[in-house]
Design a protein around this nucleic acid. Structure first.
Lengths: 353, 353
DNA sequence: GCAGGCTTCACAATCGATTGCGGAAATCAT
DNA sequence: ATGATTTCCGCAATCGATTGTGAAGCCTGC
């Protein structure tokens, strides 16, 4: 049994394949009389005709495929974005192809090349580095693409992300409100926009509150992983620096901090408060439940998809490159509490009043 | 600037496109002299030729696309399987297209139709229902497909899963070893193979151990979610049935149980022990850390991909339909402990000795 | 009743790569 | 040197759908 093709439908309806094509396409249907149009539609229906997207794509130079590139599907940050994008795209008739680069630049390049060979109509990229030659090439080549979650330094591509700056500010405000004055930031890698942005926002917020110098209290982790977070936390604790709270670059880094604190017999939140970022699922079940900044991940994915579709449909490059920041929300849970003054920083606390 | 096509390469190398095609394809390269083959290869290299996969697919009726269908990417059960499959497939030159059905049958049907229109070479399906007409059709149509994680009743498609039966047996053994005799099972939906299999294994294991009747202690949740788990746990607690341990259908259901126990001021593991299934990430950080059964998810995905590739490459249907069960492992953490005899079941405990 | 204008559809080229077929050139055997 | 093989490569059809061009058929208006 063969797949039904347009020729079969045309023969069944007693018309030329070209006519059948026009009858089936809503945009060209007006060029065909209603009677034949109906006849063709019925024949297609009856035979169970499914158009061959490959052949169509070859002729129209459109594949209705959107590629989405993420560093690691297993990172719970990404699935909600993928779902958000997928819903918008599939509603518009596009198919989302998800590829996982495993955080590897050469894999990423290979994947994107593969997808381009498939005539992919556009890309949603969640793997951007701060300096990213591959993305520069894509921008140069005029391939429709939207960045999500992470931005690049050049700002030549549209970007959809969370309002990191406000998120960090809320976190700092919250801690300061509880009475903390010695807050550390174990941020993400500085070759990602999120790592840079959050660190910068942290500096700004602590400065606004007139907190003591943050020198030595700001550290960058080598990656957004529990292991890297633990390593950085270990170094922080070993440094002997005084701190009563930590704002982690994301939730995974916070996990690393948590385990180091546990090993060092430092209680959270009694001795050190901890705030994560992203609001991964199930953080409320942790011991202690993690205070964190929630990003509208699904909405970010959906918005990125919408912007991309716009870009594709009106391929005119007249539209400016938009950078959208979506609102975030501090979710306060059990990992943050008022600091207990230790004798070593008692005087500081008194001075502050 | 246009994309380089085969004709361009051929012209640059001074040969006919057909010859260029043969020179570039490893399987037909022998039909071309080494000298021209090299010349063509160099021209392709120099011009940066990327073959158009659509055109190739149209002619060869091969798309090198594999569709993977999961109910919900955000469920941490699936990303590792996806990664496992992706690695095998991309190594073999295939592209994995992931689609999320959002647990909806009609969405699933639409997605699969879409993919078939793209000439998808095969499917990895993780959404199987116990009775699944869509999969029956696929088996009927001879589309290469492999089931992963969930099986169907018919057994007409290859299947790769975990050894659920042994996993449940280990869980029961562990609890019985701790002294439990009243164990409940809040299983998954009975229209999934995993829900059925785990419940059956539970019955068998408790029977082997000569435990008291499990009537009323085995309940099926309506879905593999925290909410459904909580609902079932609520009913179990409200029923007044005696139990000192619960084996949940999966980790999410265990989360629901945990929250109900918390609300009912029943301590875990002091009063009730709890075991999950799947070993989601970060379960070790819960309060209490959840004992669970670990499935080799990535390996399941990889194995499914390998079987699918086999099926595709030798399209001869001579190979039998294989059902592979991969080994599982009980991960003992803090949510299981010896039962504290209550006066109401003290006598039972004595009788048992 | 006929020119001019519409509508409706058939014809054929096209997208880019693959491949069966056959011819020219090169190699070999005698 | 000549006939028989083999090697190498060009020609053209093909995959299935889309689309520019033009030719019928029909209507309108003068």
């Amino acid at each position: 049994m063969q797949r039904i093709k347009l020729t079969d439908v045309a023969r069944a309806a007693g018309v030329h394949p070209g006519t059948a094509s026009r009858a089936l396409n809503p945009l060209t249907r007006e060029q065909v009389s209603q009677a034949t149009s109906r006849r063709v539609a019925r024949a297609a229906q009856r035979l169970g005709y499914i158009p061959n997207t490959l052949a169509r794509g070859l002729r129209t130079a459109r594949s209705f495929i959107i590629g989405m590139v993420v560093p690691d599907v297993a990172n719970p940050l990404f699935p909600p974005m993928v779902r958000g994008a997928e819903q918008v795209l599939s509603k518009a008739g596009y198919t989302l192809v998800l590829t996982d680069t495993d955080n590897d630049a050469s894999t990423e390049r290979r994947q994107i090349e593969q997808l381009r060979a498939r005539g992919t109509d556009g890309f949603i990229v969640a793997t951007a580095r701060w300096r990213d030659p591959l993305l520069d090439e894509i921008a140069e080549a005029g391939v429709p693409a939207v960045l999500v979650n992470r931005n690049t330094s050049t700002g030549r591509l549209p970007y959809v992300g969370g309002d990191e700056r406000t998120g960090i500010k809320q976190a700092v405000d919250h801690l300061v409100g509880l009475g903390h004055r010695h807050i550390a930031h174990l941020g993400g890698p500085q070759d990602t926009s999120t790592g840079r942005e959050r660190a910068a926002a942290f500096r700004q917020a602590t400065h606004q509150h007139g907190l003591p110098s943050t020198r030595g209290l700001i550290r960058a982790c080598t990656s957004y992983t529990e292991a890297a977070g633990a390593a950085a936390a270990g170094r922080l604790v070993a440094s002997g620096q005084e701190f009563t709270a930590v704002i982690a670059g994301n939730d995974l880094i916070a996990f690393g901090v948590l385990s180091v604190l546990g090993q060092a017999a430092i209680s959270c939140p009694d001795q050190v408060s901890l705030i994560g970022f992203n609001d991964m699922p199930h953080l409320d079940k942790l011991a202690p439940p993690l205070t964190t900044v929630r990003l509208p991940l699904a909405e970010m994915g959906a918005q990125a998809a919408r912007i991309l579709l716009d870009k594709i449909e009106q391929s005119a490059s007249d539209s400016p490159v938009t950078q959208s920041l979506l609102g975030v929300e501090l979710v306060v849970r059990g990992s943050t509490a008022a600091p207990v003054p230790r004798f070593s920083n008692n005087s500081h606390a008194l001075n502050a009043r």
